[in-house]
Design a protein around this nucleic acid. Sequence first.
DNA 1: TATAATTTAATTGAACTCAATTAAATTATA
DNA 2: TATAATTTAATTGAGTTCAATTAAATTATA
Lengths: 148, 148
Amino acid sequence: MSDMGYESLKLENQLCFPLYACSREVIKQYRPHLDALDLTYTQYITMMVFWEEKKINVKELGKKLFLDSGTLTPVLKSLEKKGYVKRYRSKEDERVLMVEITETGELLKEKAVEVPAKMAGCAGLELAEAIELRRLLDKVLSGFAESE
Amino acid sequence: MSDMGYESLKLENQLCFPLYACSREVIKQYRPHLDALDLTYTQYITMMVFWEEKKINVKELGKKLFLDSGTLTPVLKSLEKKGYVKRYRSKEDERVLMVEITETGELLKEKAVEVPAKMAGCAGLELAEAIELRRLLDKVLSGFAESE
DNA sequence: TATAATTTAATTGAACTCAATTAAATTATA
DNA sequence: TATAATTTAATTGAGTTCAATTAAATTATA
């Protein structure tokens, strides 16, 4: 009983730690599949946005990915260098940087579509569990989205 | 229907992405509390191990935190510089680096114990949901632990 | 016992993450 | 309209994160 005051400091009692560890371990599983596309995980989720949206500015992209320009600027420059996106300032508002997928970027989608299939089941959860995990994560994230 | 083949590439259908975003957002919530202790999140979870174990080598520490020496070496050097741990080679096996908490490191525990209390509820989940989330994350992590 | 294989940390290099600052453009206000 | 405040990305610097390599120590094998 004398040590009860520190129970809350035990790794096994944390919620954030398994979240953090889990996130990194799952991303590691992506690597061999993404290497084939010459994409890092961050570049991959960025391309996912472009495969859905075609065109978006840095601020909106940041909201979707929970990333700021400090992270996105080098990622977008790298994707531009690979020829997957174009970057240009908005005519209406020069502060805004528009980013648009290229034809090459669209073509990459054909190869990328195999990645989710290859990753399926890597989490080792039943479908119902995966859905519940997704729901819980969305609930946590929506709480943060509110306080912005 | 023509676009169904790409459903799996939509951000909203991913499991890894919310895991990754959630992990970073929760860690961000820690920052103001950890700033008061002059610890980063990585340094904090590392200290958590020492508050439980007192002494551990780099390899065992890495297993607990899912981190390798490339990450841990600079973290441990930084914690040593702050005076929270001591590093020394094992007498039995010179390859093994032992790391041990100092008296100063033990004292930090008194301040750190307030952190979990301050973070409680930040996830915005019911207790039962938090427990279920924890269970699901552990299940995913245990799947990875097997394949090592 | 010599040599080979393995183990352990450290190092290196590329990329990410984020807080804080900067600079340019735009909008609001005096 | 001038000036102030705000917005948007880029930059900077510190700290991870990780794959790959290196070096030293230990263990296994010829």
